[in-house]
Computed example of a mutant assay.
Amino acid sequence: MSSGKLIVLTGPSGVGKGTLVRSLLARHQNLYLSISATTRSPRGGEIDGQDYYFVSVPQFEEMITQENLLEWANYAGNYYGTPRQKVEEKIDQGITVLLEIELVGARKIRETFPTAIRIFILPPSVEELERRLRGRGTEAEEAIARRLERAKEELAASSEFNYTVVNDELEKALEALEELIVNSFLHE
């Protein structure tokens, strides 16, 4: 059996990574989404073990110590990371794994999985990104300002990735991702 692929999707907060990933998974049941661990509190409707593994700071720090994470970062005051075991199991089974992670984690994945396909999702503009972040209605003004400042730094790193996809119109962005992931990499 051939090894699976690791596909990393990165982009600034509010760019629509989650929406794109959910759409990909709905259309392609042969893809597996790695569930990240985080120390942040769940947002409305999020389910532990489905959206994230919600853990305490001491639990997360133990995962770091035990090297149970492929990558991890502290982002906007909370830890986020990718549990190692499930990802490695799926790849060994020949399954393509999607990671929806932040820039710091994607850079670490470049070191730990140099064969990973890394795709950066771009907003059509910084102004549109700000509109999307405010439209969530889930964060205080201070948190939005931090995320926008961070987004500007992240956008400058898009050239580090194998591919970029602009999420201006959802369907077009989704088709571009499908062309990269499904039509190219799944048939190699």
Rank of each mutant, 00 (worst) to 15 (best):
I117G: 03
I121C: 02
M1R: 15
L6I: 10
R150G: 08
A73K: 02
F113L: 03
R147G: 09
R84F: 00
R118S: 06
L186I: 14
E89C: 09
T38V: 11
E88A: 06
I95H: 06
V87C: 03
H187I: 14
G14Q: 06
I181A: 01
G16A: 07
L70K: 00
G49S: 10
R107W: 08
T65Q: 08
A140F: 14
T164G: 06
F113R: 00
N68P: 02
M1Q: 15
K108E: 05
E139V: 08
P12H: 07
R107G: 07
N162A: 14
A157T: 12
V126S: 14
S41M: 15
K108L: 07
E127Y: 12
M1T: 13
E61A: 03
L148A: 05
V126H: 14
G137F: 08
Y163I: 11
G137K: 07
V104S: 06
V165F: 10
T164L: 07
Y163N: 09
V21A: 06
T164K: 06
N167K: 07
S125C: 05
V165L: 11
F185K: 09
Y163F: 15
E127R: 13
K90P: 04
H28P: 10
G16T: 08
R134L: 14
E154S: 10
Y79R: 02
G18P: 05
Q93A: 10
L25A: 11
P42Y: 07
L99W: 01
E153G: 13
Q85H: 14
Y163V: 11
N30V: 15
P114E: 10
L186T: 12
Y163A: 11
P83H: 03
A143I: 13
S125I: 06
E71Y: 01
S2F: 14
S184Q: 14
R110S: 05
L24V: 07
G105F: 00
E175F: 10
D92G: 11
L103N: 02
L25G: 09
E175A: 14
E61Y: 02
L103A: 06
Y80Q: 00
F120G: 00
E142K: 09
R27G: 09
S41G: 15
I7Y: 01
S158V: 11
G81P: 03
L180V: 06
L133D: 01
A156H: 12
I47M: 09
A140N: 15
I144A: 04
I117S: 03
A157S: 15
L25S: 09
E169P: 09
N68Y: 00
T19H: 04
R147Y: 11
V166W: 06
T10Y: 02
E154Y: 06
I144E: 04
E188M: 15
Y80H: 02
R134E: 13
A145K: 12
A156P: 04
F54E: 03
H28D: 12
E160D: 15
D51Y: 07
